[in-house]
Each structure stands twice: as structure tokens, then as C-alpha cells.
Design a protein around this nucleic acid. Structure first.
Ligand SMILES: [Mn+2]
Ligand SMILES: [Mn+2]
Ligand SMILES: [Mn+2]
Ligand SMILES: [Mn+2]
Lengths: 220, 220
DNA sequence: AATAATTTTTAGATTTACCTAAAAATAAAA
DNA sequence: TTTTATTTTTAGGTAAATCTAAAAATTATT
């Protein structure tokens, strides 16, 4: 049985491992909003418990058990987010903090029934995949909007940034999940992207385009 | 902002104050499954924070703020129990432990939307009243089944014992909330109570009859 | 390869929520 | 009203999770 804090460390390590192979102390500290010294203390404990492999000064990797625990928390986080949006009518930019708390509720029965109640969703309100109870993720194939060339089109199926201001911005522009878009132009000057969406034209910055995930359906 | 533990202490004191005027250290310790010495430590802190009034050796009482906090937790506990039973199809004997955890999730918005989603229920799956967001309880008038005389009838509207074995027992006998019952006989020998419920006769012990709450509708 | 910069770990403290054992206060019984 | 029993508090300590400051290891730069 892990504490709330241990679970958060495992989840953080899991997410960092999706980006970099070798997860470093400082990266964990930044993500957890704590100090490197505290991270060292905690990773010693997690290693002691067999949840991570740790060699001094060499960063950490999750063991099988550690990874399973992390995936379970990710599953809970995302299922609760679906609940909040689908059932309680929260906006997609309002759910993260509450889900951070709900993900730690310990009851296998609860999460299985919640999953069923929600109709076994496979993605959360931000397009992130929800592992099933056997911890299997549905394969997803995203490309970043910024990578689309002029004329190419696709469907918005995710975001790689979950901050409230970013999500609100997208909402205002009508760039929500499931929307069909086509790149009509890429500005030479600043690299901003001109998009056609439901017969409107919107212009988004490179920075925004980097964080919108598209399931491509080729040229058009 | 209170910690998880502080909230549990406040809730415990609140419930004990429903029974006895002056809430004592030992009673709190027993309820919280901890030692009197630990309780003394905690009540000092709660008094420090202005959540309880405390005079050494004289027990404690909740302040206005303390009571409000406690009621908010009771409200959350009971709303989550309704969610678990009504939406996730848990049985009434399975919800308490999970609700113990869920009651500590901190989000006013969440609980208001949950309340609405559930249709503003006024009682939980055990018949206990759910305070509204202004902390007002609906007036409820219960009498214990044991107090009914032969021939009197009423509707089961609550239980004053929430243990799983007790609730399962009631379920097996068909003595669930909303059921209409009539006392057909009270055994002289052991004080057990003979009840008519949907044309069946069931016999329950004094102990069971003490913990079933009836909204009386007079003789019949 | 030596020096400098960065990253990581240790040392030593603090805070929260516990504990046991012993002392003090209150309540009950003789 | 003493004596006894019960309740409550203090004293002193532990474990979890954090911190700052300083030392050690690793990596990058000359
Ligand atoms: Mn989230
Ligand atoms: Mn999400
Ligand atoms: Mn309950
Ligand atoms: Mn209840």
C-alpha cells in the first residue's frame, strides 16, 4: 500500500519516462514542486520498496510493480476527469486539480463501476488514452498540428498541454476535440498557422499549434 | 484549511455531540481508533485553531466554525454515498469506507454539482439526512421500531447502525428503506418483535429492533 | 587532463500525527 | 472524608515528508 505522496512520485516518474529514458532527480523535483534533496529521500524509499530501480547519481526507472501502480493512478485520474466532464458538466480546463485528488481514492470496485457507468471510455477529456483494467492502452496515432503541411487536414484528438489558459484559448477559437480542421496556410514571417474549421478561418501561433494533436486523414 | 485528520476529528466530535452534551477525550479516542494521549494533542491544536472550545479535563465542544466544517464533511459523506448506491449500484452496506475517503475531496464546485446531478437528495442510503449547501437539515421525525406497540405500523426510514453485517441482515429480511411494516406481536420471553411486512411475517431480535427507525403513521 | 559548472546526495532540522509510560486531576466508593 | 478507580494530561520519543546548507559525484569546457 502506497501513501498519497508515494503515488504522486510514481505517477510523475511514469510521465517523465514517457519523454526521457533516464529520469533524473532534478526533473522529478521540478515536476513535484519540491527540492532535489526531498526527491533523493523519496526515491531511496521507493527503491527500498521495490517500486523503482535506482543507482546513485544515475536516475531512476520504474520496476514492473512501480509501473503498474503508476498506470492504475493514471487510469483513475482520467476516468474521474471523464466523470467530471460528462456527468457533472465541468469544462475540460476545470477538471485537473480535482482529479489530482480523486485519483488517490483506493477502491478497485469503485473504479471498475465508475468505468462501466461512464461506458468504458477510451480517452479522457483531453484526448489522453485511458488504460483498461488490465492496464492496456488503446494504440493512438497522433501528429502535432504544427507538423501538418498546407492543404493537409485532420481531426483534433488531443492536446499535449493541460493548462487552463491554453485550454480556454482553444475553446474560444472553437478548437475542441473531434473538430475537423484543415491547414490553409503557414505564415512565413512567424510560423503561425492559418486553419480552416467549420468554414471559419482562425490563426494560431506556432506555440499553440505545437500542442494540438491531430489524427491525420491525409490530404484533401 | 484542515488536514484529512483534523477533518475526521471534527466529524467525530460532531457525531458524539449528537449523543452526549460534553464530548470526552476517551470517547473520541475510541471512535478514532487511537489513544487518549493522541487525542489530547489534537484537541489542543483544534482549540488553537478556533475550531473547538476546550477546557482541560472538561471535554470539548465545537465552535461555530468547527461545526460548519463538520457539517460540510457529513454532507459530502452522505452525498457520495447516494452517488455510490444510486449511480454505481453499490449496496447500502458497501459504501461507508469509500465515502470515508471521498468526503475529504476539497472542492465546493464538485459537491454542488454532484448534489445537482443526484437530484438534491435529502437523505442518504441509510436514511440519514443530508444538509443542503447552507447546512440546513430537513426536519426528520423518527421513532425506534422497538418503541412501537403491537398493532402499530409505520415506514422504515432509517437505521441507527451502519455496520455491514447489520445492514446485510436487514436486507435478507426484506427490511429496507421505504418498506411498510406493522408490529404484529412482541414476544414476552425475549422481547423479540414479530413484524408483518408485505404479507410476510418476520421475527427480529430486540437488538435489531432498536436500530431500525420508523416514521410512524399511527395505528392501523 | 585539469578546471569549472551542474547535478545529486548527505547532514542536520522541522512539522505532523502518532505512540508508551508516568503523573496529575477528577469522579466514585468505602 | 479518605481511599480507590477512572479519566485526562504531560513527558519524551518515533516515523513520514519536507526543508536549507554543504559536500560529493558527474558532466561539460577549456
Ligand atoms: Mn489531468
Ligand atoms: Mn486529462
Ligand atoms: Mn457512512
Ligand atoms: Mn450513511
Amino acid at each position: 500500500m502506497q501513501s498519497y505522496t508515494e503515488e504522486n512520485y510514481l505517477k510523475t516518474i511514469y510521465h517523465l519516462a514517457e519523454k526521457t529514458t533516464n529520469v533524473q532527480t532534478n526533473a522529478i523535483a521540478e515536476q513535484m514542486q519540491t527540492k532535489p534533496a526531498s526527491v533523493t529521500d523519496m526515491i531511496k524509499k521507493l527503491a527500498e520498496k521495490g517500486l523503482i530501480d535506482y543507482v546513485k547519481y544515475q536516475g531512476v526507472t520504474l520496476t514492473e510493480t512501480g509501473k503498474n501502480t503508476a498506470i492504475d493512478i493514471v487510469r483513475k485520474h482520467r476516468l474521474w476527469e471523464v466523470f467530471l466532464v460528462d456527468k457533472l458538466n465541468f469544462k475540460w480546463d476545470e477538471v485537473h486539480d480535482v482529479a489530482e485528488e480523486l485519483e488517490h481514492i483506493k477502491s478497485v470496485e469503485l473504479i471498475e463501476r465508475l468505468d462501466e457507468f461512464l461506458g468504458f471510455p477510451r480517452t479522457d477529456p483531453h484526448g489522453d488514452p485511458i488504460p483498461d483494467k488490465n492496464r492496456r492502452f488503446a494504440k493512438t496515432q497522433f501528429i502535432k498540428l504544427i507538423e501538418l503541411k498546407t492543404g493537409e487536414s485532420g481531426t483534433i484528438t488531443g492536446v499535449s498541454q493541460h493548462s487552463s489558459p491554453f485550454l480556454k484559448h482553444l475553446e474560444k477559437l472553437g478548437l475542441t476535440l473531434g473538430k475537423q480542421i484543415q491547414v490553409s496556410d503557414v505564415t512565413d514571417f512567424d510560423g503561425s498557422v492559418e486553419i480552416r474549421i467549420s468554414d471559419k478561418q482562425v490563426n494560431i501561433s506556432r506555440e499553440v499549434a505545437k500542442h494540438i494533436l491531430i489524427s491525420s486523414n491525409g490530404k484533401n
